[in-house]
Design a protein around this nucleic acid. Structure first.
Length: 206
DNA sequence: AAGCACATCAACCGCCAGGCG
DNA sequence: TCGCCTGGCGGTTGATGTGCT
């Protein structure tokens, strides 16, 4: 007795999506919105499971996707965010407008890992390979911690704070929509084994 | 030109968390 | 409170493309 399948596998297509399938999915979502992914394939006349439809839409068909090569700034942003968040690809993706978690994950595994290794940096720990004990986060000066209103550094209840990366001196959250912020907890960092010895300190009140 | 190795990335799988009855 | 259902996530796979010999 295993898990119940997410859909009737014997009646669903797998593998690459055809142009016709893409068009069906796009036109359905344009007309009805995303709604319930489980029932969407039947309603849209697709022989795919809901998960597959969701993935296809989120990663490739959404109109707001950027596609194309990652810029050097995006590279550095991903590295910085990864040093803070670890393999939280969906969180990282919220900071890169038009990029998907899957795209960033692939890019990390194929490009950035090698890039960091060539710099002598361990991609997982972000520590220098020959001096594992000395943690030196990348470009810490490119980050500031903002509260939910965007004010510099204010700890919230339960040690929650908002991490907002900065590119060329401008907060990214100014350029992107309200979904661009991410919330992380100090506890999450510790559980991920990420050293929190960043230049982060609560503001001195009074 | 053919064969091989490596790189890339779309898609799948299984697990988990949250919502809801 | 419990169990089911669904959406979402991260890890992994495999098909395809590209470069090298």
């Amino acid at each position: 007795m295993g898990r119940s399948p997410c859909c009737e596998k014997e009646h669903t297509n797998k593998g690459a999506w055809s142009r016709e399938e893409d068009e069906r999915l796009i036109s359905y979502i344009k007309a009805h919105g995303e709604g319930c992914w489980r029932s969407l394939p039947t309603a849209a006349g697709l022989q795919r499971c809901g998960k597959s439809c969701r993935l296809r839409w989120r990663n490739y068909l959404r109109p707001d996707l950027k596609r194309g090569k990652f810029t050097e700034e995006e590279d550095e942003l991903i590295i910085n965010l990864h040093s803070l968040l670890g393999n939280k690809w969906s969180l990282i993706a919220t900071q890169l407008a038009g990029r998907t978690d899957n795209e960033i994950k692939n890019y990390w595994n194929t490009h950035i890992k090698r890039k960091l290794l060539s710099r002598g940096i361990d991609p997982q720990t972000h520590r220098t390979l020959n001096a594992a004990s000395s943690f030196t986060p990348h470009n810490t000066n490119n980050f500031q911690l903002l509260d939910i209103q965007g004010s510099p550094m204010q700890f919230l209840p339960n040690n929650i704070c908002k991490v907002s990366p900065i590119i060329n001196g401008a907060s990214l959250s100014e350029e992107s929509n309200s979904n661009s912020s991410s919330v992380v907890t100090a506890e999450e960092h510790v559980s991920d084994g990420i050293n929190l010895e960043l230049s982060i300190r609560p503001p001195s009140f009074g």
